[in-house]
Simulated assay, not measured.
Amino acid sequence: MTHYLRSARALTAGATLCSGIAAYLATTDTPLLALPPVYVAALLAWGAAKDYGHHRRILVEHEQARRAAAVQGPRSTRPPDPTAELHATCCTEAFVSRGDTHEPTCPTRTTRSSAA
């Protein structure tokens, strides 16, 4: 729970209270007295919406940082290379011949023994 969530909940409670006061004042003999609580309720609701947004942003940033640390490790500064796995794979001839022959451009060129 971030401090933004706590303040957003408090602002929401205040906006609800001001809305109740405005509803009560609207039923009295002077309904114009309901305008200031309506204005305050709107301001409190706007502040609550901003704080809920900040809370969600912080949660997303933490989740993105957690996923990035799990993928690359704590000391990695480079983004992951999506083609790295493709470059490390074997060639088509080795796939067809089960590792006995390789193309000249094959990065691994490891021949399998027929005894294995």
Rank of each mutant, 00 (worst) to 15 (best):
T110H: 07
R78G: 10
G53N: 02
P82L: 13
Y39K: 02
T89V: 00
A49R: 02
I58D: 12
G99V: 08
R66S: 05
T108G: 01
L59T: 08
R67S: 08
T108P: 00
A23S: 11
A68T: 11
R56Y: 00
A45V: 01
T30P: 00
A69N: 14
P31A: 00
H62Q: 14
T28W: 06
R98Q: 10
C106D: 05
R66E: 05
R57I: 00
S97L: 01
A41Y: 05
A41W: 04
T2L: 07
R56M: 01
F95G: 11
A8P: 06
R98S: 07
D81E: 13
A70S: 11
L17N: 02
L33D: 11
C91T: 08
T92Q: 08
A13L: 12
R75A: 11
R57E: 03
A34I: 04
T28N: 06
H54T: 01
I21M: 04
V60F: 05
T101G: 00
T16H: 10
R112F: 10
T110K: 07
E85K: 07
A15T: 03
H87I: 04
E93G: 02
T2H: 13
A116P: 00
T108S: 08
T30N: 13
A23P: 03
L32M: 11
K50A: 09
A26P: 05
Q72R: 15
F95A: 08
T108Q: 13
T2N: 14
P107N: 07
E85R: 08
D81F: 12
A84R: 04
K50L: 12
T16N: 12
L5V: 09
T89Q: 14
A10S: 12
H62C: 15
A42E: 11
H102N: 05
S114L: 11
G53S: 10
A10F: 12
S113V: 03
A10E: 15
R9F: 05
H54M: 09
E103Q: 11
A45Q: 04
P107K: 06
D29E: 11
A42F: 01
A115S: 11
G20V: 05
A23Y: 08
H87N: 09
R75S: 12
T77S: 12
A88I: 01
R98H: 10
R98W: 02
P82W: 11
Y4H: 15
A68R: 15
K50M: 07
C106T: 04
R6D: 15
P74A: 13
Y52H: 03
L17S: 06
A45S: 07
A65W: 07
Y24L: 03
A15R: 03
T12E: 14
V40N: 01
